[in-house]
C-alpha cells in the first residue's frame, strides 16, 4: 500500500506529539503543585529545589503515567482484536471473561477471606495477593473458554460462551457479597473502580514485560486480522489457518487485558471505545494502520482521563473507571452523530 503510507504519516506524527504533550501534562498535574520548570528538572535528572517533589515525580507520577500508557494502549488493542475476530462492534477486551474471572479471583480473596480464616486472609490481602488472585481468576476463566473454543468451529459461539462464563462468575460474586461484611464490600468495590497510581517500579516492570509480549503477539496477528475482514470462509480460501490465528489473537488479548486488569483493576470503556474512535478518525479497515493508531489513541485518552481524575491541586482522586466513561462516552457519541454513520 505504497500510496497509503504517505497519507497516514501526518496523523501519526500529530498523534505522537499529542502523546508526548499529554505525558508531560499528566506528570506536572497532581494534588501537590509542582512548577513546570521543576518537573523538567526532575525528569532530566537534575535536583529539584524541594526533595519531596523529586520523590513525588519519580516514585509516584512517573510510574503512574507509564501505567496509564500501558493500560490505555493495551486495552485499546485488545478491544480492536476482539472486534475484528468476532466481527462485532460491541466486542471489547473482556468478552472472553477476563475481567469477570479477575473479579471472581479478587472477590474470593477479599470477600471470602472470612471463610478461610484470619491469618490466611491478611497474607492474601496484600497488593501482590490481589494481583495474584486476579491473574489466577482471569487465567482459569480464559483457559476454560479457550478449551471450549478449540472444539468449536463457529467463532460466534465463543462470544456467547464468554458471556455465559461472565454470568456464572457474576453470580458467585453476588453470593459472596451477600455474606461479606461492609468493610470487605467496600474494599472489593474500590478494587472495581480501577486504579493506575498504586504501582511501584518493580510491579510496573513485570506489567511491562507481559504487556510487551502481548504486543508482539498482536503484531503477528495483523495479517490474519486483515484476512478475517473478508469473513472466515474467504479467509480459509486464502489459506489462513483459522484455529491457529484465533488462538494467537486470543493469547494476545489475554496477555494484554489479563495483566492490565490484574494490576489496575477492571478498567471499563477504553477497550470498547478506542477502536471506534480510531476508525472514525483514520477511516480505514487495515490493521497495519489501526493497530499503531489505537496504541496512540488509547495512551492519550488514558493520560487525559488520569489527569482529570486527579483533580489538579485538590486532595481528591476520582475513580478512574468513572472518568473514562464520563469523558469518553460523549466523545464517541459526538463522533458518531457528526459523521452520521458508523464505520466498522
Amino acid at each position: 500500500m505504497q500510496n497509503q503510507k504517505k497519507t497516514y504519516t501526518n496523523p501519526f506524527l500529530v498523534l505522537s506529539a499529542i502523546l508526548v504533550i499529554c505525558f508531560f501534562i499528566n506528570i506536572s498535574l497532581g494534588s501537590v503543585y509542582i512548577p513546570l520548570k521543576e518537573v523538567f528538572n526532575s525528569l532530566i535528572g537534575h535536583e529539584t529545589s524541594q526533595e519531596a517533589w523529586q520523590h513525588i515525580i519519580q516514585n509516584y507520577r512517573l510510574p503512574k503515567a507509564f501505567t496509564a500508557i500501558i493500560v490505555g494502549s493495551g486495552l485499546g488493542i485488545s478491544g480492536l482484536l476482539m472486534q475484528t475476530l468476532f466481527r462485532n462492534p460491541l466486542a471489547g477486551p473482556f468478552v472472553l471473561g477476563i475481567s469477570s474471572g479477575a473479579s471472581l479471583g479478587v472477590a474470593l480473596v477479599i470477600l471470602g477471606s472470612g471463610l478461610f480464616g484470619g491469618i490466611f486472609a491478611t497474607l492474601f490481602i496484600s497488593k501482590w495477593g490481589i494481583v495474584l488472585a486476579a491473574s489466577l481468576g482471569s487465567f482459569l476463566v480464559l483457559l476454560s473458554v479457550m478449551m471450549v473454543s478449540l472444539k468449536i468451529r463457529d467463532t460466534m459461539a465463543i462470544l456467547i460462551i464468554g458471556l455465559m462464563f461472565a454470568s456464572i462468575t457474576a453470580a458467585i460474586v453476588s453470593v459472596l457479597s451477600y455474606f461479606g461484611s461492609a468493610q470487605q464490600l467496600q474494599q472489593y468495590i474500590f478494587w472495581g473502580f480501577g486504579s493506575l497510581g498504586n504501582l511501584s517500579w518493580d510491579e510496573l516492570f513485570i506489567l511491562f514485560l507481559i504487556y510487551a509480549l502481548g504486543i508482539v503477539f498482536s503484531i503477528f496477528s495483523i495479517k490474519p486480522l486483515n484476512t478475517l475482514l473478508l469473513g472466515e470462509n474467504y479467509a480459509k480460501s486464502l489459506g489462513l489457518n483459522i484455529k491457529k490465528s484465533r488462538l494467537i489473537i486470543i493469547i494476545a488479548t489475554s496477555l494484554l487485558a489479563g495483566t492490565i486488569t490484574a494490576f489496575a483493576g477492571p478498567i471499563a470503556f477504553i477497550g470498547l471505545a478506542i477502536p471506534h474512535l480510531t476508525r472514525q478518525v483514520f477511516n480505514t479497515a487495515s490493521h497495519k494502520v489501526l493497530l499503531p493508531a489505537v496504541f496512540l489513541f488509547g495512551a492519550i485518552v488514558m493520560l487525559v482521563c488520569d489527569s482529570i481524575s486527579q483533580i489538579p491541586n485538590s486532595d481528591y482522586t476520582l475513580p478512574i473507571n468513572a472518568i473514562t466513561s464520563l469523558v469518553g462516552a460523549p466523545v464517541v457519541i459526538w463522533l458518531l452523530v457528526r459523521k452520521q454513520k458508523m464505520v466498522f
Binding site: L229, L230, N233, Y234, S237, N283, T284, A285, S286, F344
Partner: peptide, 13 residues
C-alpha cells in the same frame, strides 16, 4: 480461488 455468495462484512475496505 473463490467467489462466495456471502456478503463481506467489512464494507469500510
Amino acid at each position: 480461488s473463490l467467489v462466495l455468495t456471502e456478503q463481506i462484512t467489512a464494507k469500510n475496505l
